[in-house]
Every structure is written in C-alpha cells, then in structure tokens.
Design a protein around this nucleic acid. Structure first.
Length: 219
DNA sequence: AACAGATTCAACCGCTTACAA
DNA sequence: GTTGTAAGCGGTTGAATCTGT
C-alpha cells in the first residue's frame, strides 16, 4: 500500500485486541464531536492508541447507534439465505437490507450455520424439494411481478434445476440448497421475508434486484 | 471436577476501491 | 495519467465460552 511507510512506523504503537469500555467511551465521544469518518485522525484528536481501521471497525460493528443485538429472527435468516443465493459472499451488500445488522455479523452467521456440508444425496433431495417450493412461491407471489418477469423467472428455475448436480458446484456460483436446505423448512413457514424480497425489486427500480440478480445467478 | 474438542464472534489482515492533489 | 491516502470489503484468526465425556 502506498502509505505503508507511515503506517509501519506507527504500527508498533497501535493498541490491538479487545476494546475496553474506556476506549469505547473515547471513540463515542470522538464521533459525537466530529461525526463518522476521518477515522485516521481519531488517534491524533482523542489520544486513543488505535488505528483508524480499528476505530472504524469498532464503531461500525459494535458502537454505532441502531445496531440490533442478539439472535437473528427467522425473517432475517430467510433474507440472508435468499440474498446470499443471489449475490454470494457480498456481506456488506446483504447487510444493507438488514437494518441494524453488520456485514461481520452476517458473515459470522453464515459461516456458523452453513459451512458444514451435508451428504450429496441429502443435498440432492433437499434441492429438489426447494426448487419445487420456490416454483410454488413464485406463482403465489405473482401479484408483485410483471408477467414477463414471471416468465423469465420460471425459465431460470427450470434451467437451474435441470443443470445443477448435487456435488458439482460451479466455482463462481454460491451455494444454494446445499447448506441452506436444513434451514429452509423453518424459514419457509414465515412468508413475510419473501414478500419483502419481491417488494425490494419494485421499490428500487434502479437496482433491479430480482430480475437482474436472479438472471446472473441462475444463468 | 477436569479435560478436550467444538463453537462463537470480535478483531485483525491484506487487498481493492474511491477520491483528491 | 499518476500518486498518495483513507475507507471499505471479505477472509481469517484466536481468545473466550460452551458442550460433551
């Protein structure tokens, strides 16, 4: 990195490891006075012996107002699953659609719950069920979709379900039914998140989430 | 009670991106 | 167009905690 010289010189002085309540207070006070951003000047202004990176991370992931603590709700889990299927490991992008949740939290959640693989046969079975379920979902959610989009979606599902095998996951495509399946049964009981996703596409015409992202994922 | 292995999650690291000079 | 700097992102680590034996 270009500014590495300066960084290295100071590197030895930066405190690392868990933040103390006192450090948190200092950072909170700094943000109260100066606002978010300009993280590299925190040390100079406040005397905190933390790098700008560390300050930003602490603020974004822990101190920022409005953060939700505690377990994710089934709706949130469903959104994560679906958006991960759309975008892969774009944690910060996914986090934008989960107010109060951080990319780090979502990333940890995903690793915790879905990094373990199931057997190929289990996956195959689950995936078949999932695709069938999704088709049913799309038909039921039809009011949110333009007719031509629904056609594209059905085609996309057909292509995906016929071409994907259980143990051959294309490198650049995210896991879908494979690790998600065990959660799917729980999530699909509550359809609110599904409605949210469809509306997402309509509320943000400049970000054609459903059409564009589904296309890029399935095709 | 004690130990080992598994899990969780805050924090770090390296890299990329954005932007100003 | 190039360079320097800060911010942001995703992968990874490791201490703390939990769970099973």
């Amino acid at each position: 990195m270009a500014g590495m010289m300066g960084w290295r010189m100071q590197d030895e002085e930066w405190r690392k490891g868990p933040w103390t309540p006192e450090e948190d207070d200092v950072l909170i006070e700094y943000v109260r006075m100066h606002g978010e951003g300009r993280w590299s000047s925190v040390a100079g202004c406040s005397g905190l012996k933390r790098s700008g990176k560390s300050c930003r991370l602490r603020w974004v992931n822990y101190l920022r107002p409005g953060l939700k603590k505690g377990q994710l709700t089934p709706q949130e889990e469903g959104i994560i699953i679906e958006l991960h299927a759309l975008w892969g490991n774009k944690w910060s992008t996914i986090a934008r659609y989960l107010p109060g949740r951080t990319d780090n939290e979502i990333k940890n959640y995903w690793r915790t719950n879905f990094k373990k693989k199931k057997t190929a046969s289990q996956n195959q079975e689950k995936q078949t069920l999932k695709v069938a379920f999704r088709r049913d979902q799309y038909q039921q959610e039809a009011p949110y979709m333009e007719d031509n989009n629904r056609g594209k979606m059905d085609d996309a599902i057909a292509v995906k379900s016929s071409s994907t095998t259980s143990d051959q996951q294309p490198h650049n495509q995210p896991l879908v039914a494979q690790d998600v399946a065990s959660w799917w049964d729980v999530v699909c009981e509550d359809r609110l998140w599904s409605e949210f996703l469809w509306k997402l596409g309509n509320d943000h015409p400049n970000q054609p989430v459903m059409e564009q992202s589904f296309s890029s994922y399935f095709l």
